[in-house]
Each structure stands twice: as structure tokens, then as C-alpha cells.
Design a protein around this nucleic acid. Sequence first.
RNA 1: GGAGAGAUGGCAGAGCGGUUGAAUGCACCGGUCUUGAAAACCGGCAAGGGUUAAUAGCCCUUCCUGGGUUCGAAUCCCAGUCUCUCCGCCA
Length: 424
Amino acid sequence: MLDPKLLRGNLDEVATKLARRGYELDTNAFNELEARRKDLQIRTQELQNKRNTISKGIGKAKAAGEDIQPLLDEVASLGDELKAAEEQLKTLQGELRELLLGMPNLPDDSVPDGKDEADNREERTWGEIPAFDFEPKDHVDLGEALGGLDFAAAAKLTGSRFAVMHGSLARLHRALTQFMLDLHTTEHGYSETYVPYMVNEASLYGTGQLPKFAEDLFRLEGEQGWHLIPTAEVPLTNLLRDEILEADRLPFKVLAHTPCFRSEAGAYGKDTRGMIRQHQFDKVELVQAVRAEDSFDALEELTGHAETVLRKLELPYRVVTLCTGDLGFSSAKTYDLEVWLPGQNKYREISSCSNFLDFQARRMQARWRNPDTGKPELLHTINGSGLAVGRTLVAVLENYQQKDGSVRVPEVLRPYMGGMELIR
RNA sequence: GGAGAGAUGGCAGAGCGGUUGAAUGCACCGGUCUUGAAAACCGGCAAGGGUUAAUAGCCCUUCCUGGGUUCGAAUCCCAGUCUCUCCGCCA
């Protein structure tokens, strides 16, 4: 959520920045709504003040044994007007809040303008794109031939966009997860965390999935309003909701390995083959919360942590800065890590690292106490995948494949695979 | 699932329908004392919002959440959430 004070004071500037990402802010409508809010709020609070003053007077008069009837008469006339004003104010503030909750974050100045992923800016590439002396297969052909990937079984058990893994590939999936967890906890300073895979609506409002993106989520039946998590970002970041951290707890760095559940509404026909786009996939998620002035450094650092996974796995990748049109709702700046997939002959997203500034923190009142002032200040939140496990498995299969259809095991994974060097 | 108890400031813990945003203790911050520290003593110390140039004043809201009663609710009523204890069931 954007700072309401920023909107009041710099509306045109905010509108200009929002326009960069294709969000049209009706400044006249906002101004009109805001003017009404101001009037109504001032009037309501005046009435409340009057009522409070008289009521206290009644208490005193009664204690002194005086006649309270004149005071009762005076306050009686207030009643209806106050009630009406309070109700109107509540409605109006609800409208303003809805508007604010539906407004995306402002893109950082360093974010390139653009319409879609074609306008993203490549920052750097790493690794050699492998040259094969045979026609490389994609992960589906490789996995099915190895007997480790079974999409037909998954379709029978559940439906499309699910996977069943067997044997060495299932183990490779687990090995990748363990490798990532160990790397980030021992070398990058994240605290391993176990979280619920279902969250309530307040948590989803906090990170920005609600109210606008309900159709992307799986909602469970029942009164509670629980949803399956689309990413561990939701439970991890919401650990800080309604909290005030002491300064010595910063930077706050946590990580979790969880399954992620996405309805993929609106993705019909997209990436229908294989494991690229599933309703359920595993991910190791990195989350940081830091002081405002540290957040862009933290974004670089966290992106580097995700890159380290790819480097240690020796998978070629590139880093792109998402353009304004491709930027996620809550993010001010996002780097995508795209891994090279020989089966598709292109780079595909495998991690997304974002700085949300105080956008999420304001929604969830996540603060830290500045010892210099003694006052709470909003945190800045940063997160990124480190990495999406399923897509990493795809990348390993396709980049490490051999002519005979076997797959070499990356060096760093061998300890997690009981020393196995080759999957055949 | 059944029965009972509870939810108050960073923590512990008082609180009669009326000058209670809330006693007291601990923690924390500042000061006095001290070579320094501790102790002792003095003072300060919730959050969110509005107004405003203001991080100054003033005002509003908040004692789990949402309704209600009342001139006035932390205190009374209703519904819900969560925690604890006992019983049942269970990985």
C-alpha cells in the first residue's frame, strides 16, 4: 500500500509513476474522495470530542451531587448526528482503503519502461550455453525415458499441471532442495523456518495477493477463509505483521522450503507441456526485512544468493530487470534470474527477486524501532526464490543430458545423491 | 468432539460503568551520586489516525475481534477467534 500522505501531497507525481506501469489513477476522483474524507473526519472527531467532554462532565456533576439533567439534554441532541457521521466516515474510509489496496507499488526510477517481458533489460549473463553434438531433448522426453517423470500418472491422480516423480529423479528433486537449504543457511545467513502451507486472508492482504488476485489462489472451503500458499513469501513475510522489531534483530533473514499452489487462471495453453508451470511446485524462498536505507543493497545481496545456487550447479543463466509492464503488483524493482533451457533453446525464469520497499510493510504494519528516535518505522521487505526446485530440476536434466539419454549429476549434488554420478 | 478457565502496554500483573490510555513491578532511556560500574534516588517511557510547515501543540481511536446496551464501557450483554487445563479421538 502506498503512503496515503504521499498521495495527498504529491498526487500528480504518483499518478505519473503509476502510469509508467499502466495503472491509470483518476486524480480528480481521488481528490474529490479525499476532500470529503477530510471534512467528514474532522466533523466526526469534533462531535466525538463534544460527547466525551459532556460525558466526563456528567460523571463529575454526579459525584458532586449536582443536577445532571441539563447535560443529558445537551448530549441527547448529539446522538443521531454523531452516529450518522460515524457511519458515513466508516463507509468512505472503506472506499478509500479499497482504492489504496488495489493500487500497485511505484516502480523505482531505475526500472526500464516497457510493455511486457520483451522490454525487460538484460543486466548480465553467466556461464557457457552448452553445445551439443546431438539434438538435445527437453526434460519431458528425458524424464519419461528415464522412468522418473510420469505426467500421465499425475493426470490420473489429480489432473493436468501436476507431476509424479520416481526413483533417481525424485531423489534429485530432494537433493536440490537440501543443497539449496544448506547453502543459504550456512553461507548466506538465513534462518531456516517451517511455516503453515495454508494462510488466512489477513496474511494474503499483507503481502498483496488480496484483494486483487484471488483468482490466482486456491481457496479452501469453510468459514476461515484459508488459502493454500502461492509462495512461502506469504507466511514468512507475515511473521512480521503487527510486530515492532528491535534494531538488533535486523537484518531479518529467513528462508523456507515449501510447496507452492497456484491456480494458473489465465495461463490456459501456456507451458502446458512438462514441469514448467504446475499447480503445485516446491520452492526455497528467501525473505529479508531491513531498514529503509538498506533495501536496495539487500536486493542486490539476495539476488546474488539466488545466483550462487545456479553458479554452484554450473547452470548458465542471465539476470534481467523487469520493465514497468512486467513488474509484479507489490514490487518496486525486480530482477528475474533466467536459466538456459536447451530443450526450449531459450532462457526461462527460475527466480524472481524483488524489493517491495515499505509497500508490504505498510499493509501489515511491520516495523522496527529506531533507537535514535525511539519511534517505530516501517521495514522494507525483499524476497526471492532461491530457487524454484521443479524448474531447477528441469534445468539440470536438460543441461546435463548426454547423447544416450542419461543425465550427469552436478558435482555439488553428488553428496546428496549417495555419490551417484550418472542417472540412467 | 465434550467440560472448564482465560485474553489488559516490551514482559509480568491490578482494575468499582464515570477526570483510567489504564495502578504496581521488571525491562529500557535520561539525570543525580561515583575515578568507573553497581546500588540508591529523581524523571521519562504504548500504537494507529486526523489537523498542521512541524518529529510542536490539540483532537480522535484502540485494553483479542466484531456487534449491542449506556450520556459514558477495559469493566455489562451477544457472537466469534485464540490460548491453557481435563476427557475423548488420532499421525
